Simulated assay, not measured.
Amino acid sequence: MRKSYTILLSLAVLLSMVMSVQAMESKTIDRSNGASASADWCETNGDITTGKYLSVTETDDGTDIYLEIYTYGPDYWSGKSGYIFTEDDVFSIDRKLNSASLSDVEIEVCNWDTGETETLTVNADWIGMGDISRDSYTSRSQSGNYIWKSSGSSKYRDASATSSIDGMDLGASSYASLSNFKSAYMSMEK
């Protein structure tokens, strides 16, 4: 009888090991860490407003940079924008969101009306201002044997930014911010 119990116990242990291996094989986890900085420059002369917007997001994969330049009035709207992704080390940011810097990068921008393109050289510096705010989230969903879970946290801080485009100094930003974030995603089949 004792031998039967030993065999059953051994089978149960083996079965649980096989099941845990199968669960591990059907489990996917993705993690992402990153940081970002953005800034707006806006100027109004009479009824004409001119603005520039720059955003930089760095993850483990590389750095995304987006630039937009626009002008509008009562019966007028024009603009151009461009985007690049680079694996070069062009962006740095302090962990405590005290400062950030984008070194010279070339971005090809496209005119929204004509489709004409031009290449602009952009750089920027940010200085963190005020308190750091924090945010976090978690979510879970299930459909049949599939389970999805995601979670994330971020810190962000207001900032002041300066930039130049093709050597033209934009002066102090109208608004700017710095942030860093962590996120995780898991999918599992029971």
Score class of each variant (00 low, 15 high):
86 T>G: 08
65 I>T: 03
120 L>N: 13
176 A>C: 01
48 I>K: 07
59 T>V: 00
46 G>Q: 06
151 S>N: 12
55 S>W: 02
163 S>V: 08
42 C>L: 15
64 D>H: 03
91 F>G: 08
105 V>H: 04
100 A>Y: 10
104 D>G: 08
170 L>Y: 00
73 G>Y: 01
47 D>Y: 07
172 A>T: 15
71 T>H: 03
181 F>P: 08
152 G>I: 13
153 S>C: 05
161 A>T: 06
170 L>F: 04
144 G>M: 06
155 K>I: 14
178 L>V: 03
120 L>T: 01
163 S>K: 05
80 K>Q: 12
92 S>R: 15
157 R>L: 08
100 A>N: 12
142 Q>K: 06
70 Y>E: 12
183 S>D: 08
165 I>F: 04
83 Y>R: 08
47 D>Q: 14
140 R>P: 06
165 I>S: 03
81 S>Q: 07
146 Y>E: 15
182 K>V: 10
120 L>M: 12
183 S>Y: 09
150 S>A: 15
165 I>L: 05
81 S>E: 07
174 S>E: 08
140 R>I: 15
76 Y>F: 03
156 Y>I: 07
151 S>F: 09
101 S>L: 15
153 S>R: 14
76 Y>R: 02
131 D>K: 11
106 E>H: 13
182 K>I: 14
184 A>Y: 09
99 S>H: 11
56 V>M: 00
71 T>Y: 06
78 S>C: 07
42 C>A: 12
90 V>G: 07
99 S>C: 09
132 I>W: 09
147 I>D: 00
101 S>M: 15
42 C>H: 11
88 D>P: 06
71 T>G: 11
71 T>A: 05
68 E>V: 12
115 G>N: 05
